[in-house]
Amino acid sequence: MLDYGFASLSVHMLVDLNEPESVVGIKAVAEWARDQDQAVRVWPFLREPINTAAEVPKGTPDFEAYKARRGLARRRYKDQERRRNLQRLSLNNTWKFTDAGATLVHWGLVRLAEHEMSATAVSAFVLGLVSSNKVLDTGCVQAALLEVMPVLASEMRGFDEAAAKADLAERSLALSDQGILSAPSMMYQAEVFSGIAHLPRLTALCRPQTPLGSR
């Protein structure tokens, strides 16, 4: 299994920065980490969204018509939720990475996590980037990464987009094998939490246990 350097006592968050839900998740988790004084590492997870309906064998015309209508309803709902997430980020429009920019920013996330950058700092970096109203190409991403972590300059000089893309795909596949289904997700002590809504439960799990002798 690929070594992600996951410390079991930290919370790990898996994100896809192309998606508003992941960026809202980073913002929420950063606030939670600060309030709870909890270490959170933010890592990339880049996989096609799971579409279980597409794997259902074809049925009668009525069955197929229902599937099509439900699929349309689901897509319409996703659009509503995307708009709400943009509102949570105080943005009017979604951002767009170029292919190379997307690879670089997720490569950068791995470096930031390996350097144990806090979720608060990662959140500031990501929110600054997606609200910049620029096309997020490699130049733009590189400048933002260097601003948040100047020490990355030397690593970035040797940046190989194809190799980085392959590495990100391999990491995401390894995470899938560990039970991650989609981004955003979280992991704590090898347990997977899909979405960011589990933070209240994580609060309970991460709370220091009362020593037995003091009960």
């Binding site: 809202v24 509102q87 949570r88 979405g195 960011i196 933070l199 209240p200 439960r201 609060t203 309970a204």
Partner: peptide
């Protein structure tokens, strides 16, 4: 005010 984040309520036990 700001739109809340999503969360699953969890009862303290």
């Amino acid at each position: 005010g700001p739109m809340p984040f999503v969360r699953y309520p969890w009862q303290a036990v």
